[in-house]
Nucleic acid binder design. Structure first.
Length: 741
DNA sequence: GAGCACTGC
């Protein structure tokens, strides 16, 4: 029992901060003062069986004595639900108007864990226990004292409160996943711990990274942060390797799956492949071969269903992974089996119960960043040992299982990296650098990273921010940069949005920005490509894919009453709904920052202005047509690229501005708008400074435009919206306010 | 004439 003293004043109920034991066994709920429900007692019994529960007193002792703890617990230890509760009982944050925060890399995890913990504590979700994720704040200020949140959300909060004063303890969960946000938070918290001796920090991770984190979080150079260990609770998984390397991993995977189906005990199979196309293809082949097997030998081979799983699948189809395995085709016949063929989404984000066999070819698509040409691309690469272990673990969630690795044991030991490269080493950091500078970190190169990014990556980010006029030459954030950091957008998009009132089209740019921030809205089912392309054609604005996106969004809003509209037009209702959500969030931020929402009545002029505005954000992503084979060369980087086949442009204009550079079968630029030479020189004079261009077609084109401009002499353009001159002044003419919600 | 690993604000 805790130190219950009935005379003590509420709401402490006799608890002493940092001195609580046996916190769960009271008759009354100390937070609501209501008697505990029967459900509470029942859940409490289950909690008591968790490995971590037995270590509560040990944990509290270590927690009370130390400012920073590194904690490891394998799956099934209960750390994510229990540790934050132990901390809350020790901190009693509500008595001091503070909160305990626990971060998660994913939204669903933050939501579902918060719900579970609210039940465990016998309180209503959103009151004492809540969660906070983008678009949804399920907390009650003044009441909530235990908050689960996404790591990105805590990073946003840090921008407005550098000391994170509201929190008594911050718990970073799943730190081993090394998301960009977690990595930045680790750096910030390490520094913050020195300034706020009252703040406690717990870093929770899988076993392999613990020593690295312990060393990183040693506040005094001699002592590592203490480690608290909790055993996991999973079933054993037997691991098999191939004798020889497999030349074709998809073929080998299909063979292995069928071998399991024929020869192994009942139990579902999880096969990891790398992407949508590969998965759909493998499912087709498995289905054909399995049907063959059943036909040949119906007495010993049962039916098999093959279920694809990847993130772009509609939620309804994703749900199919929870369907039970098929029944025997006849009474007393061989049992059926379910096989899920999945991307990495089944490695961490989604858990499928009943999986007994895992087939792991050892590959996944991974993001890589090339700072030289500023391109992020996806590459099929070997996974890490940690990842292979995680995959194998998926076979042992309900009972002992087996994992078939389609590579040799020698390759596993010698060739696979220990850990997946952290995201911070594989990403374009333009956004992150803007965030860090906004957080007051000026010396980005010497910031205390867990793993420091390549200096060239940081230089590229700084260069971009400088060209966008977000930072001055001394590395300080400009007024414009401050505004840009307020938006959850890439710097180019933020700059575009902030510049758009100058062109009287901020309502339209707001829509385009939202559309560019969500997944692809165009659906193109394999067997209906022609119909889908024809449907898309009807929305196409010939000179600009950006305007096409604007058009689609506006039509979507006009037809919202029609449930079939998206479907008949081959559009993703999910993505369009997300765009609507993002748009309203961005609009709220614009209103808060007093950025005007304006439009023009004249559509021709409006569309021209939208294209001009695009130049203000994307002048660094422009390509010039070279030769007559339809190929383009990007400005400054001189990459030869083609217009992506999805591009709606009817001609091949001399200059195009693009949203992204994708490296697939060949280099493509995607989501493209035709722009004019004089716009480039007028709205990005420093980037398109003739002196900086080598001789060639591009320079000659710029020279022609320059001569023409000098000929007609336009003094106004000299002073207009120079790219390094900070916030553009807003001119409002012919304006009407629209969509004022 | 092609794709979208997965997250997050």
């Amino acid at each position: 029992m805790g130190k219950l003293d009935p005379s003590a004043s509420e709401p402490l109920y006799g608890f002493m901060p940092r001195n609580v034991t046996g916190a769960a066994d009271h008759d009354l709920n100390p937070f609501t003062k209501a008697p505990h429900t029967a459900q509470y007692r029942k859940i409490l019994e289950a909690r008591k069986k968790l490995p971590v529960f037995a270590q509560m007193d040990d944990f509290l002792e270590m927690f009370n004595k130390n400012q920073i703890i590194v904690m490891v617990g394998e799956t099934g230890s209960g750390k994510t639900t229990q540790i934050p509760q132990f901390v809350a009982f020790s901190d009693l944050p509500h008595t001091r108007g503070k909160l305990v925060a626990c971060t998660q890399p994913r939204r669903v995890a933050a939501m579902s864990v918060a719900k579970r913990v609210a039940d465990e504590m016998d309180v209503q979700l959103g009151r004492q226990v809540g969660y906070s994720i983008r678009f949804e704040d399920m907390t009650e200020p003044g009441t909530t004292f235990l908050k689960y949140m996404t790591d990105g959300m805590l990073l946003r909060e840090a921008m407005h409160d550098n000391n994170l004063e509201r929190y008594s303890t911050i718990i970073l969960d799943e730190a081993h996943e090394r998301t960009l946000a977690t990595d930045i938070l680790m750096g910030l918290l390490k520094d913050l711990a020195k300034r706020r001796s009252d703040l406690k920090i717990i870093v929770m991770s899988a076993t392999l990274d613990a020593v690295k984190f312990q060393k990183y979080f040693s506040l005094r150079s001699e002592a590592s942060a203490p480690l608290f260990k909790v055993p996991g609770r999973t079933h054993p998984v037997e691991v098999f390797y191939t004798q020889e390397p497999e030349p074709d991993y998809v073929e080998a995977a299909i063979r292995t799956v069928l071998m399991i189906h024929r020869a192994e005990e009942p139990g579902d199979i999880l096969l990891f492949l790398t992407g949508e196309e590969e998965i759909e293809d493998a499912c087709r082949k498995i289905k054909i071969e399995a049907d063959d097997l059943v036909n040949q030998d119906p007495d010993s081979v049962g039916p098999l269903v093959c279920i694809p799983l990847y993130s772009s699948l509609p939620p309804q189809q994703q749900q199919r992974i929870f369907d039970p395995a098929p029944k025997s085709s006849k009474e007393g016949g061989p049992p059926g089996r379910k096989i899920v063929v999945s991307t990495n989404i089944a490695e961490t984000s989604l858990t499928i119960d009943g999986i007994v066999y895992v087939v792991d070819p050892g590959f996944s698509k991974q993001k890589v960043y090339n700072p030289r040409i500023r391109v992020e691309s996806l590459l099929v690469s070997p996974i890490s040992k940690a990842s292979a272990q995680q995959r194998a673990g998926r076979a042992g969630r309900t009972r002992p299982g087996k994992c078939f690795r389609l590579y040799t044991e020698k390759d596993f030991i010698k060739e696979l990296e220990e850990q997946t490269y952290p995201e911070i080493l594989r990403s374009n950091l333009a956004n992150t650098v803007l965030e860090l500078v906004n957080l007051g970190i000026k010396d980005l190169v010497h910031f205390d990273y867990v793993d420091a990014p390549a200096p060239e990556t940081l230089m590229r980010a700084l260069e971009l921010l400088n060209f966008l006029a977000a930072m001055d030459d001394e590395g300080n954030l400009t007024a414009l940069g401050k505004l840009m950091a307020e938006f959850p957008l890439d710097p180019q998009l933020a700059k575009l949005l902030i510049s758009s009132p100058e062109f009287n089209c901020s309502n339209e740019i707001l829509t385009i920005t939202a559309m560019l921030s969500v997944p692809n809205v165009w659906l193109r089912p394999n067997n209906q490509r022609r119909e889908a392309d024809a449907a898309k054609e009807l929305f196409t604005v010939p000179e600009s894919d950006h305007l096409t996106l604007l058009n689609v969004y506006n039509q979507f809003i006009l037809n919202k009453w029609d449930k079939n509209w998206t479907w008949t037009n081959y559009l993703s209702a999910r993505a369009l709904g997300q765009a609507e959500n993002v748009r309203s969030q961005l609009q709220r931020i614009m209103e808060r920052l007093d950025i005007d929402l304006v439009s023009l009545d004249d559509e021709i002029k409006l569309f021209l202005n939208v294209r001009k505005a695009l130049v203000c954000g994307f002048f660094m992503q422009v390509a010039h047509k070279e030769g007559d084979k339809g190929s383009y060369t990007t400005v400054k980087d001189h990459q030869v690229v083609g217009l992506h086949p999805s591009c709606g442009l009817k001609t091949q204009p001399e200059w195009v501005l693009f949203n992204e550079f994708v490296l697939t079968t060949r280099p493509y630029i995607r989501t493209v708008t035709e722009v004019r030479t004089e716009w480039l020189m007028e709205f990005a004079p420093l980037y398109f400074d003739l002196k900086t261009f080598p001789d060639g077609e591009m320079k000659r084109a710029l020279q022609r435009a320059y001569n023409k401009k000098m000929g007609i002499s336009n003094p106004r353009s000299e002073s207009r919206n120079e790219s390094r001159k900070g916030t553009p002044t807003v001119e409002v003419r012919e304006v009407k306010r629209r969509r004022k919600e």
